[in-house]
Amino acid sequence: MFRRVKHWGPGLLLLAPTIILVGVFVYWLIIENFRVSLTNQHTAKPSDKYVGFENYTNLLADPNFQHSLWNLLILTIVFLGGTLIFGFLWAWILDKPAKGEGFFRAVYLFPMSISFIASGVVWRWLLSSLQTDQPGGERTTGLNRLLDSIGLGFMQNDWWSNPTWGIAAIAVPAIWQLSGYVMALFLAGFRGIPEELREAARIDGCSEWKLYRHVIFPQLNPVMLSAVIIIGHMSLKLFDLIRAIVPDANTYDVQVPATMMWVKYIGSDYADAAAIGMILLVLVAIVVIPYLMYTSRAEKR
């Protein structure tokens, strides 16, 4: 008996602080949050009456919440698509032996070192919705002014001030910021493919396109999956960037569940805020858990 304790005891002791901290500050808080989401505490007044899943059904039936989910979907699609396309293109260009590769790699990666809050303040100005042909148009700034001054005035638009597609404009700074990261992932993927494989393919008479199509791309699949998971869960949780670009948290056009949770919380509607938090957790879990299962299986192999 004592022997066995001696075997796993020190290890457990070493892990105990982590287990306790994670247990309290992650899992216990998730449970507590779930408990609050089942109560009817919609005002600051303490209330512990349980209403089952009523808050969830009310939220899912609420057109404002549905709109926020719709926004989240558009944001995720545009954000994912943008970062993957740019990240892949840049990695592909840099993969060819070219001069100044280190320089360009740094340039593309650099935006990632800026916090969303800091870049958001600049993007708020860049994405100003005023257009030159509108009343007061002489005050136009940011991208709209730039487009107008290079003769592309017809491309001016109201960016995020649009209830249907406005959220896609929020994805623009997010793409700008994280494409470099996806590029780094893909570049590592490219570099991980041995040169011999390419040579062998060329000797077999592969065209350059077929080389990529049948030799390189299949080997990039794990990288691609990692990128999708990382960017996808960031997109689902995106809050700070929206908060920094849009001055008022309660702006309908760009409301996503994360910002709506904040608005509910400020308004002391703790039950609804907790319920939105749980819905977000489930959404992120749907993305992350299959990935974790996949990697752990891959590691076992």
């Binding site: 919609h42 005002t43 404002n64 001030s161 649009n162 209830p163 008022d248 309660n250 702006t251 309908y252 056009d253 409301q255 608005v263 509910k264 400020i266 308004g267 002391s268 509607d269």
Partner: peptide, 19 residues
């Protein structure tokens, strides 16, 4: 009105600004 009422109404007014 209490904050929660004001919040909900603000969302509606903000939405109206668009549609």
């Amino acid at each position: 009105v209490p904050v929660a009422w004001l919040n909900d109404l603000s969302t509606a007014v903000s939405k109206f600004g668009g549609d």
